[in-house]
Design a protein around this nucleic acid. Structure first.
Length: 960
RNA sequence: GCCGAUGUGGUGGAACUGGUAUACACGAGAGACUUAAAAUCUCUUGCUCGUAAGGGCUUGUGGGUUCGAGUCCCACCAUCGGCACCA
């Protein structure tokens, strides 16, 4: 009987589907296994051989685990939102919804033609409103916890895809999707505060059964480094006095400490107690301060909250001051906590004559807490505009700067520059400072900078450079000195120059460094170019010199001591917050509403999902606005809080949103009340084995760990780490060794192989290609070898199906050996050697007597690899039911041991012959027999045997 | 530059804790069946000296440890992947 895959494959696929053979049960009594494979985005090009590699491997694993008696969930779904799907639709001139549906249909057909054992009862689709309702819901949980925030900053912008990108989506300065060099654009964007989870994401890795390479890549991406933050005060000889004005209710908790710090530095500090702290009147208070404090051009006035209003009144009333620092000062008089503070509101709403104020003082520092619970940061923005000053947005120790040691306030008071360093031990060698061109201090000091035009020119130049230009390898470092400004090295008390240079990055650390040219290569290059001084402070033996009281200490100890004395220890991460909005149509709408009175208001949960509206034109605008912004009927809504006219957020979420939690939904895909019932989650999680690509290590894999950890912290999922074991696969390249792509025309089409050889052949060939985690070029030449193997298996079964043979001794040994080897190979994910083992078996048993029982065992273990031929063979052997329900045969270790041992006989470590001898023979016996072998005798010749190395049951070696 | 992985026949690759290197497959060569081809089956196939028996060499290169190294150690070379002026 001939092996004709096309006749049997379709038949069994129908059988499996009709009988729901692969559906998995919740709460089964069997041990559960959750096998997951990254779900595809259904591109127009169809399934390619690269997808198949992990699907087949995961399928083999799932089927094996089922046969081993587990309840296995092996689901699949569609990651159908996002750029590629939208770009494809644009190209085809259809709605993304239409093309996506079509592509899914096509993918599913291809997947089913491979006989993959997916549980389709759990299918999910990220573009289904019943699914993305929960994506939006989870986003709102982030928002409510303060982990989704809006900010205006320089972000990565892809000019071709016309959207902002996350840091993770930029590879080598280019868009991860289309390869276009990424530009910098100042934009208002939504962020997820993944940085808050940096340490947790790092810690969680430890316990995971993941390849080291994957863990390391995530570790490096998170990029933790330990060091110190050190303040360098800007030298300002004019300033002599400080006046600290407190807010409403009378005390500003950080003032005693602040006063002490300032006095330590030799300043006179006055902290007047205002007249009527509970019901303050700003005009009266200003007059009181004027009468009781020394106020002149050598004075800096610092005002907290309401105190800031008083400070501005002083200027309005004609007092001239050196500088004014406002922190947490209200502008609109509306408060975030909803508490009424009517006298403060009245004071703020009285308004100011900003021209007068600016005439009397030219230097303002505005400091606002990004997590303030009383005064919004937008009040700071208002002052910044009116006063033409720079707004500093920092996180305070306790919201609204109510901690006892608010270091940001001190920095602002002193106009100091904070640097981050991993080498605090070299502080005495720091001979200049470098700040990023974007650093706010540059603007705050603009009146002191004598070469302002030159500095501004440099800043503009830096702004217009792309990341690639800015970090070009061979590029020489450039910079400009801030003339007229100098800082004080806190250790040496020397005045040192301050430079701006674009080799200092604004986003990392504090955006400023202490340059130590003698101990840092980059600083050295810069110092040589601009003739800046160097001082060696650590000798070749790692001990300090030229460092005052620290001389002689080893550098590790010095790190600690110098940090203690001059700064604070500090940990920084390279990880950046996740830019989470996209200016594109085909994504989940961000479920928020902008109201001019209430601010940003979440869409009430019962109104979810916010459905993506149907539109005619969905192409990206390129203006930085999503196409949704043009749909007035959708954008204009009533504020859910106050009912006045408001507008929807028009940005959409990135493709990574839906895929960040899909593995949770599989456990309970139709739940309408919750994203998944906790009971289901508890039963199925964590994912036992997750198959996927290396390319997702710092994208999907990191993002979804973050979402899961967040949901865990909210008590919504049972495990902090979702994926117990990760199994990456190597990329399959085209035959030309290049990445498979439609434009190169090197995409290998699985359909043609299925047509010619059948799905079972393709499955086994995918596995046989090479080690699963290794990159490999597609080469169809070997397909025929696998096909020949299946043909021979078919013949073996069909020829012996009705015989009454008993197994030969060799067959017994070989079948037990095969079971053992296949089992071990699957567990170790060495699928290529599993296939080899099958081939070796067929070669070994040809011509031997083989029993029906042995053939049945063979067919059962072949099932995970080639399920169609196995079902048909099982039927031929008159097996009952589906072979997919058969338990995995047990191998008998005793059958694997033969009665004789084969020794390797060596002379001086060189192979000289084999020796078969009864098991358990002693050294003397083996020696005697070995010396009878002619080649051994020849090799020894007349030499004397010096030593014999004897490894029982294995080897004997004569040393002569 | 830093981090990681890899390097074995003409090709894809195998080799468990150091113990017969080149399993399995492709390709190639020879033969059988056939009028012929395809398919299938059998044999040969790391390199090299030799008619042969038999010998020598061989896991990127060079050293080392060991009775014995693809496997362990040191140095170097090459390829691939990740990060990259990260202070």
């Amino acid at each position: 009987m001939k092996y004709t895959p096309e006749k049997i494959e379709r038949k069994w696929q129908k059988f499996w589907s009709l009988n729901k053979v692969y559906y998995s049960k919740n709460f089964s009594k069997k041990p559960k296994k959750y096998v997951l494979v990254e779900f595809p985005y259904p591109s127009g090009a169809g399934l390619h051989t690269g997808h198949l590699r992990s699907y087949v491997a995961a399928d083999v694993t799932s089927r094996f685990l089922r046969a081993k008696g587990n309840e296995v969930m092996f689901p699949l779904g569609w990651d159908a939102f996002g750029l590629p799907a939208e770009n494809y639709a644009i190209k085809m001139g259809v709605q993304p919804e239409v093309s996506t549906k079509q592509n899914i249909k096509n993918f599913k057909k291809q997947i089913n033609s491979l006989g993959l054992s997916f549980d389709w009862s759990r299918e999910v689709n990220t573009t289904d409103p019943n699914y993305y309702k929960w994506t939006q819901w989870i986003f709102l949980q982030f928002f409510k916890q303060g982990l989704a925030y809006e900010a205006e900053s320089l972000i990565n912008w892809c000019p071709k895809d016309k959207t902002g990108l996350a840091n993770e989506e930029v590879v080598d300065g280019k868009c991860e999707r289309c390869g276009t060099p990424v530009e910098k654009k100042e934009m208002r964007q939504w962020y997820l505060r993944i940085t808050k989870y940096a340490q947790k994401l790092l810690d969680g890795l430890e316990s995971l059964d993941w390849p080291e390479a994957v863990k390391l890549q995530q570790e490096n991406w998170i990029g933790r480094s330990e060091g110190a933050e050190i303040e360098f005060e800007i030298s300002n000889k004019k300033v002599k006095n400080f006046v600290l004005l407190h807010g409403r209710s009378g005390n500003t908790k950080t003032y005693p400490w602040l006063k002490e710090e300032l006095e330590k530095r030799g300043y006179r500090v006055q902290v007047p107690k205002l007249l009527n702290p509970d019901q303050p009147n700003d005009l009266e208070e200003a007059e009181y301060v004027r009468n009781n404090c020394q106020l002149d051009e050598n004075t800096v006035v610092i005002g907290h909250s309401f105190g800031g209003i008083v400070a501005l009144r002083l200027l309005e009333q004609g007092i001239k001051l050196n500088r004014v620092v406002l922190f947490g000062t209200p502008f609109t008089g509306k408060f975030l906590d909803g508490v009424e503070r009517s006298t403060v509101t009245l004071a703020a709403q009285r308004g100011f004559d900003f021209n007068k104020i600016k005439n009397n003082c030219s230097n303002f520092t505005l400091l606002y807490d990004t997590q303030d619970t009383i005064v919004p940061v937008s009040d700071g923005e208002n002052y910044a505009k009116k006063l033409s000053a720079v707004l500093l947005q920092k996180k305070s120790q306790v919201p609204h700067f109510q901690g006892e040691k608010e270091s940001e306030v001190l920095s602002a008071a002193l106009q100091s520059i904070k640097v981050f360093t991993t080498r605090p031990d070299t502080l005495f060698g720091s001979t200049y400072l470098v700040v990023a061109p974007e650093h706010p201090i540059v603007f705050n000091l603009n009146r002191d900078i004598k070469n302002w035009d030159e500095v501004q020119g440099y800043i503009n130049e830096a702004k217009n450079k792309t990341d690639i230009q800015r970090s070009a390898l061979e590029k020489e470092k450039t910079g400009v000195e801030l003339k007229g400004v100098s800082a004080i090295n806190p250790a040496t008390k020397e005045l040192i120059p301050v430079w701006i240079a674009d080799y200092v990055l604004p986003q990392y650390g504090t955006g400023a460094i202490m340059a130590v040219p003698s101990h840092d290569l980059r600083d050295e290059q810069f110092a040589r170019k601009y003739h800046l001084p160097m001082r060696v402070v650590v000798n070749e033996k790692g001990r300090l010199q030229n460092s005052g009281e620290f001389n002689g200490l080893d550098f590790e100890t010095a790190k600690k001591k110098i940090t203690e004395k001059f700064g604070n220890s500090k940990i920084t991460y390279k990880l950046r917050d996740w830019v989470f909005s996209r200016q594109r149509y085909w994504g989940e709408p961000i479920p928020l509403i902008h109201c001019s009175d209430c601010g940003i208001v979440p869409v009430p949960e019962k109104e979810l999902p916010v459905k993506l509206p149907k539109v005619k034109k969905y192409e990206p605008t390129g203006t930085g606005q999503s196409p949704l912004a043009a749909i007035d009927s959708w954008v204009n809504v009533k504020c859910p809080k106050c009912g006045t006219r408001a507008k929807r957020e028009t940005n959409t979420m990135p493709q990574w949103a839906g895929s960040s939690w899909y593995f949770l939904r599989y456990t309970d895909p139709k739940n309408k009340k919750r994203f998944a019932d906790l009971k289901n989650l508890k039963y199925w999680l964590p994912v036992d084995i997750y198959f996927g690509g290396m390319e997702h290590t710092t994208l999907h894999l990191l993002y979804s760990r973050f979402w899961n950890q967040f949901l865990f912290d909210q008590g919504l999922v049972p495990m902090s780490e979702p994926y117990k074991r990760r199994q990456p696969h190597g990329i399959i390249l085209g035959e030309d060794g290049e990445k498979m792509s439609k434009s190169r025309g090197n995409v290998a089409n699985p359909d043609a192989i299925i047509k010619q050889y059948g799905a079972d052949t393709l499955r086994m060939f995918e596995l046989f290609l090479g080690p699963h985690e290794q990159t490999i070029s597609w080469n169809e030449k070997g397909v025929v070898g696998v096909y020949r193997f299946l043909q021979r298996s078919w013949s073996l079964v069909s020829e012996n199906a009705s015989s009454k043979n008993k197994d030969s001794e060799k067959v017994v040994l070989e079948i037990h050996r095969l079971i053992k080897r296949v089992e071990e190979a699957v567990l170790a994910m060495k699928f290529n050697t599993a296939v080899s083992s099958f081939m070796e078996f067929i070669n070994a048993v040809s011509g031997e007597n083989i029993s029906k029982e042995t053939l049945k065992k063979f067919v059962v273990i072949l099932t995970p690899f080639a399920p169609h031929i196995s079902e048909e063979s099982w039927k031929m052997l008159s097996g009952k039911g589906s072979v997919t329900k058969q338990p995995w045969p047990v191998y008998d270790p005793n059958k694997l041991i033969s009665q004789t041992s084969t020794y390797v006989v060596q002379v001086n470590g060189k192979f000289r012959g084999n020796l078969s001898i009864a098991k358990g023979s002693l050294e003397a016996g083996v020696k005697e027999e070995a010396l009878k072998i002619e080649t051994v005798r020849n090799a020894i010749g007349t030499s004397k045997i010096k030593k014999i190395v004897f490894v029982p049951e294995r080897l004997i070696n004569f040393v002569v």
